[in-house]
Protein backbone atom coordinates (compact mmCIF):
# COMPACT_ATOMS: atom_id res chain seq x y z
CA UNK A 1 0.00 0.00 0.00
CA UNK A 2 2.83 2.26 0.93
CA UNK A 3 4.57 1.44 -2.31
CA UNK A 4 1.50 2.60 -4.20
CA UNK A 5 1.48 5.88 -2.38
CA UNK A 6 5.15 6.57 -2.94
CA UNK A 7 5.09 5.71 -6.61
CA UNK A 8 1.97 7.80 -7.17
CA UNK A 9 0.54 8.19 -10.65
CA UNK A 10 3.71 7.33 -12.54
CA UNK A 11 3.11 3.59 -12.25
CA UNK A 12 0.72 1.97 -14.71
CA UNK A 13 -2.46 0.51 -13.22
CA UNK A 14 -1.17 -3.05 -13.58
CA UNK A 15 1.62 -2.44 -11.07
CA UNK A 16 -0.77 -0.88 -8.60
CA UNK A 17 -3.08 -3.93 -8.39
CA UNK A 18 -3.03 -5.42 -4.87
CA UNK A 19 -1.06 -8.65 -5.29
CA UNK A 20 1.21 -7.36 -8.05
CA UNK A 21 2.30 -4.28 -6.15
CA UNK A 22 2.96 -6.51 -3.17
CA UNK A 23 5.02 -8.85 -5.29
CA UNK A 24 7.10 -5.98 -6.59
CA UNK A 25 7.79 -4.59 -3.15
CA UNK A 26 8.76 -7.95 -1.68
CA UNK A 27 12.24 -9.34 -1.33
CA UNK A 28 13.95 -12.53 -0.21
CA UNK A 29 12.05 -14.69 2.22
CA UNK A 30 8.89 -12.63 1.99
CA UNK A 31 8.85 -12.98 -1.77
CA UNK A 32 9.38 -16.72 -1.33
CA UNK A 33 6.39 -16.93 1.00
CA UNK A 34 4.23 -14.87 -1.32
CA UNK A 35 5.18 -16.91 -4.37
CA UNK A 36 4.64 -20.24 -2.59
CA UNK A 37 1.27 -19.05 -1.42
CA UNK A 38 0.29 -17.80 -4.85
CA UNK A 39 1.34 -21.05 -6.53
CA UNK A 40 -0.66 -23.17 -4.07
CA UNK A 41 -3.70 -20.90 -4.38
CA UNK A 42 -3.58 -20.89 -8.17
CA UNK A 43 -3.26 -24.69 -8.28
CA UNK A 44 -6.26 -24.91 -5.95
CA UNK A 45 -8.31 -22.62 -8.19
CA UNK A 46 -7.29 -24.46 -11.37
CA UNK A 47 -8.24 -27.81 -9.85
CA UNK A 48 -11.53 -26.34 -8.67
CA UNK A 49 -12.39 -25.04 -12.14
CA UNK A 50 -11.19 -28.03 -14.14
CA UNK A 51 -12.16 -30.83 -11.71
CA UNK A 52 -14.79 -32.26 -14.09
CA UNK A 53 -12.11 -32.74 -16.75
CA UNK A 54 -9.17 -33.82 -14.58
CA UNK A 55 -10.99 -36.26 -12.32
CA UNK A 56 -11.16 -39.78 -13.78
CA UNK A 57 -14.52 -40.49 -12.11
CA UNK A 58 -17.47 -38.55 -10.72
CA UNK A 59 -17.46 -37.67 -7.03
CA UNK A 60 -20.37 -40.02 -6.29
CA UNK A 61 -19.52 -42.64 -8.90
CA UNK A 62 -19.49 -46.19 -7.53
CA UNK A 63 -18.92 -48.22 -10.67
CA UNK A 64 -17.66 -47.99 -14.25
CA UNK A 65 -17.71 -50.19 -17.35
CA UNK A 66 -15.56 -52.75 -15.56
CA UNK A 67 -18.14 -53.19 -12.78
CA UNK A 68 -18.54 -51.76 -9.26
CA UNK A 69 -15.50 -50.22 -7.59
CA UNK A 70 -13.83 -52.31 -4.89
CA UNK A 71 -14.06 -50.88 -1.35
CA UNK A 72 -11.14 -49.82 0.85
CA UNK A 73 -8.66 -50.79 -1.84
CA UNK A 74 -5.11 -49.47 -1.53
CA UNK A 75 -3.76 -47.26 -4.31
CA UNK A 76 -3.56 -49.10 -7.63
CA UNK A 77 -3.35 -48.12 -11.33
CA UNK A 78 -7.16 -48.06 -11.65
CA UNK A 79 -7.59 -45.95 -8.50
CA UNK A 80 -4.32 -44.14 -7.99
CA UNK A 81 -5.18 -42.95 -4.46
CA UNK A 82 -7.27 -46.00 -3.54
CA UNK A 83 -10.98 -46.27 -2.73
CA UNK A 84 -13.02 -45.51 0.40
CA UNK A 85 -15.17 -47.76 2.55
CA UNK A 86 -18.17 -46.68 0.50
CA UNK A 87 -16.38 -47.47 -2.77
CA UNK A 88 -15.65 -43.91 -3.88
CA UNK A 89 -12.46 -43.11 -5.77
CA UNK A 90 -10.32 -41.05 -3.39
CA UNK A 91 -8.42 -39.18 -6.13
CA UNK A 92 -11.60 -38.04 -7.86
CA UNK A 93 -13.24 -36.97 -4.62
CA UNK A 94 -10.22 -34.90 -3.58
CA UNK A 95 -10.27 -33.07 -6.93
CA UNK A 96 -14.02 -32.47 -6.82
CA UNK A 97 -13.67 -31.35 -3.21
CA UNK A 98 -11.63 -28.37 -4.38
CA UNK A 99 -14.61 -27.22 -6.38
CA UNK A 100 -16.96 -27.43 -3.41
CA UNK A 101 -14.48 -25.58 -1.22
CA UNK A 102 -13.95 -22.83 -3.79
CA UNK A 103 -17.68 -22.24 -4.29
CA UNK A 104 -18.29 -22.11 -0.53
CA UNK A 105 -15.42 -19.65 -0.03
CA UNK A 106 -16.68 -17.34 -2.74
CA UNK A 107 -20.30 -17.39 -1.61
CA UNK A 108 -19.46 -17.11 2.10
CA UNK A 109 -16.90 -14.36 1.80
CA UNK A 110 -18.97 -12.38 -0.71
CA UNK A 111 -21.96 -12.52 1.62
CA UNK A 112 -19.98 -11.53 4.68
CA UNK A 113 -18.17 -8.70 2.92
CA UNK A 114 -21.43 -7.29 1.64
CA UNK A 115 -23.19 -7.45 5.00
CA UNK A 116 -20.17 -6.57 7.11
CA UNK A 117 -19.19 -3.57 5.01
CA UNK A 118 -22.74 -2.25 4.81
CA UNK A 119 -23.34 -2.58 8.54
CA UNK A 120 -19.90 -1.21 9.38
CA UNK A 121 -20.38 1.87 7.22
CA UNK A 122 -23.83 2.62 8.58
CA UNK A 123 -22.86 1.93 12.16
CA UNK A 124 -19.65 3.93 12.05
CA UNK A 125 -21.09 6.85 10.11
CA UNK A 126 -24.33 7.38 11.98
CA UNK A 127 -23.29 6.22 15.43
CA UNK A 128 -25.92 6.46 18.15
CA UNK A 129 -27.93 3.63 19.63
CA UNK A 130 -27.82 1.52 16.47
CA UNK A 131 -24.04 1.64 16.56
CA UNK A 132 -23.93 0.65 20.21
CA UNK A 133 -26.34 -2.22 19.69
CA UNK A 134 -24.48 -3.57 16.67
CA UNK A 135 -21.14 -3.35 18.45
CA UNK A 136 -22.46 -5.28 21.44
CA UNK A 137 -23.89 -7.99 19.20
CA UNK A 138 -20.77 -8.19 17.06
CA UNK A 139 -18.58 -8.46 20.15
CA UNK A 140 -20.73 -11.20 21.61
CA UNK A 141 -20.63 -13.21 18.39
CA UNK A 142 -16.96 -12.52 17.91
CA UNK A 143 -16.08 -13.94 21.32
CA UNK A 144 -18.04 -17.12 20.75
CA UNK A 145 -16.47 -20.34 19.38
CA UNK A 146 -17.05 -19.91 15.65
CA UNK A 147 -17.50 -23.58 14.89
CA UNK A 148 -20.34 -23.90 17.41
CA UNK A 149 -22.12 -20.96 15.88
CA UNK A 150 -21.68 -22.47 12.42
CA UNK A 151 -23.09 -25.80 13.65
CA UNK A 152 -26.14 -24.11 15.15
CA UNK A 153 -26.68 -22.14 11.96
CA UNK A 154 -26.34 -25.17 9.70
CA UNK A 155 -28.87 -27.09 11.80
CA UNK A 156 -31.25 -24.16 11.61
CA UNK A 157 -30.88 -23.67 7.88
CA UNK A 158 -30.75 -27.16 6.48
CA UNK A 159 -31.57 -29.43 9.41
CA UNK A 160 -28.09 -30.85 9.05
CA UNK A 161 -27.81 -32.16 5.51
CA UNK A 162 -28.97 -31.23 2.06
CA UNK A 163 -28.44 -31.01 -1.68
CA UNK A 164 -25.48 -29.40 -3.47
CA UNK A 165 -26.69 -25.80 -3.68
CA UNK A 166 -28.77 -26.11 -0.53
CA UNK A 167 -25.75 -27.42 1.33
CA UNK A 168 -23.45 -24.80 -0.16
CA UNK A 169 -25.77 -21.97 0.77
CA UNK A 170 -26.32 -23.38 4.26
CA UNK A 171 -22.59 -23.78 4.85
CA UNK A 172 -21.87 -20.33 3.42
CA UNK A 173 -24.45 -18.65 5.63
CA UNK A 174 -23.17 -20.54 8.66
CA UNK A 175 -19.64 -19.39 7.91
CA UNK A 176 -20.58 -15.81 7.11
CA UNK A 177 -22.36 -15.42 10.44
CA UNK A 178 -18.92 -15.87 11.96
CA UNK A 179 -17.21 -13.48 9.55
CA UNK A 180 -19.65 -10.56 9.43
CA UNK A 181 -18.57 -9.24 12.86
CA UNK A 182 -14.94 -9.20 11.72
CA UNK A 183 -15.62 -7.10 8.62
CA UNK A 184 -18.02 -5.01 10.63
CA UNK A 185 -15.39 -4.14 13.22
CA UNK A 186 -12.71 -3.27 10.71
CA UNK A 187 -14.94 -1.14 8.50
CA UNK A 188 -16.61 0.57 11.45
CA UNK A 189 -13.28 1.56 13.00
CA UNK A 190 -12.05 2.91 9.66
CA UNK A 191 -15.31 4.77 9.07
CA UNK A 192 -15.12 6.48 12.45
CA UNK A 193 -11.55 7.54 11.69
CA UNK A 194 -12.38 8.77 8.18
CA UNK A 195 -15.50 10.60 9.29
CA UNK A 196 -13.29 13.23 10.90
CA UNK A 197 -11.18 13.76 7.77
CA UNK A 198 -11.41 17.23 6.19
CA UNK A 199 -12.61 15.92 2.83
CA UNK A 200 -15.65 14.32 4.46
CA UNK A 201 -16.39 17.57 6.24
CA UNK A 202 -16.12 19.52 3.01
CA UNK A 203 -18.36 17.02 1.23
CA UNK A 204 -20.91 17.64 3.97
CA UNK A 205 -20.57 21.39 3.60
CA UNK A 206 -21.09 21.11 -0.14
CA UNK A 207 -24.30 19.27 0.65
CA UNK A 208 -23.57 15.69 -0.36
CA UNK A 209 -26.06 13.15 0.95
CA UNK A 210 -25.06 10.63 3.61
CA UNK A 211 -25.33 7.78 1.14
CA UNK A 212 -23.06 9.55 -1.31
CA UNK A 213 -20.49 10.35 1.35
CA UNK A 214 -20.49 6.78 2.59
CA UNK A 215 -20.40 5.25 -0.86
CA UNK A 216 -17.95 7.57 -2.51
CA UNK A 217 -15.68 9.07 0.11
CA UNK A 218 -15.57 6.61 2.97
CA UNK A 219 -16.15 3.24 1.32
CA UNK A 220 -13.16 3.44 -1.01
CA UNK A 221 -10.79 4.45 1.72
CA UNK A 222 -12.14 2.12 4.37
CA UNK A 223 -11.87 -1.03 2.30
CA UNK A 224 -8.11 -0.99 1.78
CA UNK A 225 -7.46 -3.76 4.27
CA UNK A 226 -10.05 -6.03 2.73
CA UNK A 227 -7.70 -8.10 0.49
CA UNK A 228 -5.88 -9.15 3.63
CA UNK A 229 -9.01 -10.12 5.55
CA UNK A 230 -10.29 -11.83 2.44
CA UNK A 231 -7.37 -14.23 2.19
CA UNK A 232 -7.36 -14.93 5.91
CA UNK A 233 -11.09 -15.55 5.91
CA UNK A 234 -10.94 -17.73 2.84
CA UNK A 235 -8.64 -20.11 4.69
CA UNK A 236 -10.83 -19.98 7.76
CA UNK A 237 -13.86 -20.70 5.58
CA UNK A 238 -12.23 -23.90 4.32
CA UNK A 239 -11.45 -25.00 7.88
CA UNK A 240 -14.99 -24.26 9.06
CA UNK A 241 -16.49 -26.06 6.08
CA UNK A 242 -14.28 -29.07 6.74
CA UNK A 243 -15.15 -28.93 10.45
CA UNK A 244 -18.87 -28.92 9.66
CA UNK A 245 -18.41 -31.79 7.22
CA UNK A 246 -16.32 -33.71 9.71
CA UNK A 247 -19.02 -33.47 12.38
CA UNK A 248 -21.65 -34.54 9.86
CA UNK A 249 -23.39 -31.20 9.39
CA UNK A 250 -22.05 -30.44 5.95
CA UNK A 251 -23.06 -31.48 2.47
CA UNK A 252 -24.22 -35.01 1.67
CA UNK A 253 -21.61 -37.19 -0.09
CA UNK A 254 -23.92 -37.81 -3.03
CA UNK A 255 -24.50 -34.06 -3.57
CA UNK A 256 -20.88 -32.96 -3.61
CA UNK A 257 -17.42 -34.09 -2.62
CA UNK A 258 -16.35 -32.50 0.63
CA UNK A 259 -12.99 -33.05 2.30
CA UNK A 260 -14.26 -32.84 5.87
CA UNK A 261 -16.87 -35.55 5.30
CA UNK A 262 -14.27 -37.84 3.76
CA UNK A 263 -12.00 -37.31 6.76
CA UNK A 264 -14.83 -38.20 9.09
CA UNK A 265 -15.17 -41.58 7.37
CA UNK A 266 -11.39 -41.94 7.37
CA UNK A 267 -11.07 -41.73 11.17
CA UNK A 268 -12.56 -45.21 11.52
CA UNK A 269 -10.28 -46.48 8.73
CA UNK A 270 -7.19 -45.15 10.49
CA UNK A 271 -7.59 -47.58 13.38
CA UNK A 272 -7.21 -50.48 10.97
CA UNK A 273 -4.21 -48.95 9.24
CA UNK A 274 -6.01 -47.66 6.12
CA UNK A 275 -4.23 -44.38 5.52
CA UNK A 276 -5.12 -43.39 1.96
CA UNK A 277 -8.71 -42.40 2.65
CA UNK A 278 -7.64 -39.74 5.14
CA UNK A 279 -4.18 -38.59 4.15
CA UNK A 280 -5.11 -37.31 0.68
CA UNK A 281 -8.14 -35.16 1.51
CA UNK A 282 -6.40 -33.96 4.67
CA UNK A 283 -3.32 -32.92 2.75
CA UNK A 284 -5.54 -31.13 0.26
CA UNK A 285 -7.03 -29.06 3.10
CA UNK A 286 -3.62 -28.29 4.58
CA UNK A 287 -2.10 -27.22 1.25
CA UNK A 288 -5.06 -25.03 0.32
CA UNK A 289 -5.22 -23.31 3.70
CA UNK A 290 -1.44 -22.98 3.69
CA UNK A 291 -1.46 -21.32 0.28
CA UNK A 292 -4.17 -18.82 1.17
CA UNK A 293 -2.63 -18.06 4.56
CA UNK A 294 0.82 -17.49 3.06
CA UNK A 295 -0.65 -14.99 0.61
CA UNK A 296 -2.56 -13.18 3.35
CA UNK A 297 0.37 -13.25 5.70
CA UNK A 298 2.73 -11.81 3.08
CA UNK A 299 0.30 -9.05 2.16
CA UNK A 300 -0.02 -8.20 5.84
CA UNK A 301 3.74 -7.99 6.31
CA UNK A 302 4.22 -5.98 3.15
CA UNK A 303 1.52 -3.51 4.16
CA UNK A 304 3.31 -2.85 7.43
CA UNK A 305 6.47 -0.87 6.80
CA UNK A 306 7.95 -2.12 10.07
CA UNK A 307 7.65 -5.74 9.00
CA UNK A 308 8.56 -5.26 5.35
CA UNK A 309 12.03 -6.19 4.25
CA UNK A 310 13.62 -3.37 2.29
CA UNK A 311 15.34 -3.31 -1.04
CA UNK A 312 18.64 -1.63 -1.54
CA UNK A 313 18.08 1.85 -2.90
CA UNK A 314 19.56 0.90 -6.25
CA UNK A 315 18.27 -2.66 -6.53
CA UNK A 316 15.40 -2.19 -8.95
CA UNK A 317 14.90 -5.81 -9.88
CA UNK A 318 14.36 -8.64 -7.44
CA UNK A 319 17.41 -10.60 -8.50
CA UNK A 320 19.43 -12.92 -6.29
CA UNK A 321 21.34 -9.93 -4.92
CA UNK A 322 18.18 -8.53 -3.36
CA UNK A 323 18.36 -11.04 -0.51
CA UNK A 324 21.64 -9.60 0.62
CA UNK A 325 20.18 -6.16 0.13
CA UNK A 326 17.26 -7.05 2.34
CA UNK A 327 19.59 -8.36 5.01
CA UNK A 328 21.54 -5.14 5.21
CA UNK A 329 18.36 -3.11 5.08
CA UNK A 330 16.92 -5.16 7.92
CA UNK A 331 20.01 -4.76 10.01
CA UNK A 332 19.89 -1.05 9.40
CA UNK A 333 16.23 -1.11 10.28
CA UNK A 334 16.72 -3.01 13.52
CA UNK A 335 19.32 -0.49 14.54
CA UNK A 336 17.02 2.40 13.75
CA UNK A 337 14.02 0.95 15.56
Amino acid sequence: MNATKVSGRKQPLFYRLPVISHFRSSVGLQRGMLVTGLVLSVVFLLVAVFAPWIAPYGFAQLSDAAGPFPTQQPPSPAHIWGTTVGGYDVYSRVLWGAQTAAVVIIVAVAMSIFLGVALGLVSGYFGGWLDRLLVVIADAIYAFPSLLLAIVMSIVISHGQSSFWGGIVACSISISVVFVPQYFRVIRAETIRLKAEPYVESAKVVGASSIRIMGRHIFKNATRTLPLIFTLNASEAILTLAGLGFLGFGIEPTSAAEWGYDLNKAIADASSGIWWTGVYPGTAIVLTVLGLTLVGESINDLNDPRLRGRKKAVAGKGGPDSTAGAQTALEAESRVL
Binding site: G243, A270, S271, G273, V279, G282, I285, V286, L290
Partner: peptide, 28 residues
Protein backbone atom coordinates in the same frame (compact mmCIF):
# COMPACT_ATOMS: atom_id res chain seq x y z
CA UNK B 1 1.23 -21.47 9.86
CA UNK B 2 1.23 -25.24 9.41
CA UNK B 3 -0.26 -25.66 12.89
CA UNK B 4 -3.03 -23.29 11.90
CA UNK B 5 -3.55 -24.81 8.46
CA UNK B 6 -3.93 -28.37 9.71
CA UNK B 7 -7.47 -29.11 10.89
CA UNK B 8 -7.39 -30.77 14.31
CA UNK B 9 -9.13 -33.86 13.03
CA UNK B 10 -6.51 -34.36 10.33
CA UNK B 11 -3.69 -33.82 12.80
CA UNK B 12 -5.42 -36.33 15.07
CA UNK B 13 -5.76 -38.81 12.25
CA UNK B 14 -2.09 -38.55 11.36
CA UNK B 15 -1.07 -38.99 14.99
CA UNK B 16 -3.32 -42.01 15.34
CA UNK B 17 -1.80 -43.54 12.23
CA UNK B 18 1.76 -42.84 13.35
CA UNK B 19 1.72 -43.52 17.09
CA UNK B 20 -1.17 -45.92 17.56
CA UNK B 21 -1.36 -47.99 14.41
CA UNK B 22 2.18 -48.10 13.01
CA UNK B 23 4.28 -47.71 16.14
CA UNK B 24 1.69 -49.14 18.52
CA UNK B 25 2.88 -46.94 21.39
CA UNK B 26 -0.36 -45.25 22.39
CA UNK B 27 -4.06 -46.16 22.52
CA UNK B 28 -6.22 -45.20 19.55
Amino acid sequence: ILCYATPVFFAGLLMKLAFSVWLGWLPV
